[in-house]
Nucleic acid binder design. Structure first.
Lengths: 114, 114
DNA sequence: CTGCATCCTTTCGGATACTG
DNA sequence: CAGTATCCGAAAGGATGCAG
């Protein structure tokens, strides 16, 4: 049963695409890894991920926040203080990222060697 | 030891980016899933992945072939017959894809629900 | 300090037409 | 049948400047 129709294929593909969208692009992964070491402020991240631009950093952080893998906390102070922090849902991504990394290492070995 | 420098971070990030590059884009994942059911010819894939264009299908197949996750076999016949097939290295990707799918499902639940 | 507005470049993928 | 060549539009991402 369960013929391979476009619909049954999509049922497999859609969740994977969802995940790839959360991780996709040049910066989200790096952001996540840096935040895995602890909460960070905007300017800290800007420095650590240099040469990222403010605009891009802002956009990426919003995307991660919308996907609930990080939180944004604004403290009432002047000058402003904002802290970004990984959520449990974000932590759960690291198992997946680690698998991707393992495959990537095997892949690099296969492609580069010999 | 092992401070969190840009270099140590990159050591984690680069293999993951390698993996994401192999899977990235609109079509590679679908291609892989269709090929997981058995070898396919160019026109079969074109039909199954409709509305993909010939040009795009051709490009994506070349990319997967370059990454050694599929093979391309040309049979001497007229009209031409070409068969695409997943490699063992390609098969090993499905464990990763499955993990991505699991996370994606949990993610969708979290984002869509409530 | 945090971050948005505007503009610009680069990249990705699609449309159409054509070939061995 | 299995592609390639050329052209093009949409989208992602960067540079610069300004604001609360």
């Amino acid at each position: 049963m369960s013929v391979r129709t476009k619909e049954t294929c999509n049922k497999h593909i859609i969740p994977v695409r969802d995940a790839l969208e959360v991780l996709g692009g040049r910066w989200k992964l790096q952001l996540l890894i840096h935040l895995s070491f602890g909460p960070r402020r905007f300017s800290q991240l800007a420095k650590e991920l240099s040469p990222i631009t403010d605009r891009t950093l802002s956009r990426e952080l919003k995307s991660l926040e919308a996907n609930k893998v990080i939180t944004r906390t604004e403290y009432d102070a002047f000058p402003p203080v904002v802290e970004y922090k990984i959520t449990p849902h974000g932590e759960s991504l690291f198992a997946v990222i680690s698998e991707l990394g393992n495959w990537g290492r095997a892949h690099r070995k296969l492609i580069m060697d010999k």
